[in-house]
């Protein structure tokens, strides 16, 4: 196990941030830590990197307790661009490689390798301040992996990126996985987790509510398919859904039907004849629904059965 946290607790004053967190990440795995802001993602990273200690529980990284020494094994790409703007791309890489104990020709090899991997050769000698945001983010990532760490922690790596840059970063994470690097990815972007992660842990209020592969997590939802509906009369919809035995979920004004079996749009509209539907979209069960189901159970509205729904 490359990362292991058992029953980890951490509080800042009266605020309990981690409340018995259990987390295990295997070697070579891409593990997604999904959570809202304030769920405890950053605190988890800070404990794993030895920046802060936990109040209780056991934590190990590559079989050792977190400390300054294990930081040579870890590369962290922070969410914000954290680079020396007056230095060039390669100078940043050399500086951060150097403080990760790389020296001489080894340092040069590592810098050249990472410049190649992230396709930075065109900007190698350009000052960071002259680069666009997208290229700066690429250098930000390069700095995290210049010392070829066994574990890479990516803290919301695609926040603020355009679509193309996101996809390029995803491809890079897949390259890391192919190379056998263990990746811990924190994100609140569900499609990112679905696309990249071998396993996902849903972090809420300082503990993992559920973890597993995307497929396994999707089985949490009692549905074969989802239908997102926009409806004029929600009471009527709830009533009809209840009569049909279809559970309904409402999150932030969006209404979703949990369909027990796959169906066609025409059949579904037929089942809800008389209910003024403005739009209906069928989609497969995804991690987003799982996340909402687990983290916001109080927003669940089960359909209410009734003999007549007029």
């Amino acid at each position: 196990m490359m990362i292991e946290m058992r029953d980890t607790e951490k509080s800042f004053g009266a605020r309990r941030v981690l409340a018995g967190l259990d987390l295990s990440v295997q070697e070579g795995e891409v593990y997604g830590l999904l959570g809202n802001n304030g769920a405890g993602k950053s605190t988890t990273i800070n404990i794993l990197t030895g920046l802060i200690g936990s109040d209780a529980g056991e934590v190990s990284v590559a079989g050792r307790p977190p400390s300054a020494e294990i930081r040579t094994l870890i590369g962290v790409a922070p969410q914000e661009i954290a680079l020396y703007q007056h230095l060039t791309c390669k100078e940043n890489l050399r500086f951060f490689g150097g403080i990760h104990r790389l020296r001489g020709s080894t340092l040069k090899q590592h810098v050249d390798r990472v410049v190649d991997t992230l396709d930075l050769s065109e900007y190698g000698d350009a000052r960071v301040s002259t680069m666009s945001g997208g290229w700066q983010r690429r250098v930000n990532l390069a700095v995290a992996i210049v010392h070829a760490p066994a574990i890479v922690i990516l803290d919301e790596p695609t926040a603020g990126l355009d679509v193309q840059a996101r996809y390029e970063l995803w491809e890079f994470v897949r390259t890391l996985r192919r190379d056998g690097t263990t990746v811990l990815l924190t994100t609140h972007m569900m499609d990112e987790a679905e696309s990249l992660c071998d396993r996902v842990g849903i972090l809420h209020d300082g503990r993992i509510l559920r973890e597993g592969s995307i497929d396994a997590l999707c089985r949490v939802i009692p549905a074969a398919e989802l239908a997102e509906v926009d409806v004029e009369d929600i009471a009527l919809l709830l009533c009809r859904a209840g009569a049909l035995g279809i559970p309904v979920r409402r999150y932030g004004g969006r209404t979703t039907l949990l369909l027990p079996a796959k169906t066609t749009l025409a059949d579904l509209i037929g089942q809800f004849e008389g209910v003024p539907l403005r739009s209906v979209t069928l989609r497969p069960v995804g991690i987003q629904q799982v996340f909402l189901e687990l983290t916001q159970p109080n927003r669940v509205s089960e359909g209410v059965g009734s003999g007549s729904c007029e």
């Binding site: 962290v76 922070p78 020396y84």
Partner: peptide, 14 residues
């Protein structure tokens, strides 16, 4: 301000 302090803290630099 540039957040490089955090990056340094995450490195083995004492």
């Amino acid at each position: 301000e540039r957040r490089t302090l955090r990056r340094l803290l995450l490195s083995p630099l004492s």
